[in-house]
């Protein structure tokens, strides 16, 4: 198994602009989500973002150019539990990680891919670790399966699989 797939944005390439990391993280999220299958169809493909305005901006850019599963991508800013209906992906920025515990029960078994960006964070399906100079992501297949989602095996070789 390939141990690590990472993306790190050296400031040599992109000076003084932390948003550049989110630019690539957003691209990674789009590519990862393409390799995940959801059980039930719906009108739109909804990605909820908790906390990171930069990522949200990058994802909105992608949503205007691409579709997922033939559906329009809709990016929403999530700030409360009420906004979690009909959501496919929920992203927790580093500073919003604590909210995961509060809503985990509500999301349990629902077909939602949870994505975090904090080293050591438990309960997510995909976790971006170290988003400063490099971006690595961990894959938690068991957590993904618990949410009734299936993964393309090709993804497993691209991230760091955690059992």
């Amino acid at each position: 198994m390939k141990k690590i797939v990472l993306i790190g944005i050296l400031l040599t390439l992109f000076q003084y602009s932390p948003a550049q990391n989110y630019k690539f993280q957003a691209l990674f999220i789009y590519n990862i989500v393409k390799r995940v299958n959801w059980p039930s169809p719906s009108d739109n493909f909804v990605i909820g973002v908790m906390g990171s305005k930069e990522l949200q901006k990058e994802l909105i850019g992608i949503s205007k150019k691409q579709k997922l599963g033939g559906k329009q991508i809709k990016i929403i800013n999530v700030s409360s539990k009420e906004e979690l209906n009909d959501i496919h992906v929920l992203y927790f920025s580093r500073s919003s990680s604590s909210k995961l515990n509060d809503i985990q029960a509500q999301l349990k078994s629902k077909p939602i891919l949870l994505i975090g960006e904090k080293s050591g964070l438990k309960g997510v399906g995909i976790n971006f670790i170290d988003n400063s100079n490099e971006i690595k992501f961990e894959i938690y297949p068991a957590n993904i399966k618990d949410h009734q989602l299936t993964l393309a095996t090709s993804l497993l070789s691209l991230g760091e699989v955690k059992q």
Binding site: G8, N31, I62, E134
Partner: peptide, 26 residues
């Protein structure tokens, strides 16, 4: 972003690896 969206994920990762972002480059 358009250019990068056109890239298959593997190519994106390959690009990253080629230009400083592989583990040894890291």
């Amino acid at each position: 972003q358009e250019d990068l969206l056109e890239l298959p994920f593997e190519d994106l990762i390959h690009l990253v690896k080629k230009f400083k972002l592989s583990s040894i480059e890291e």
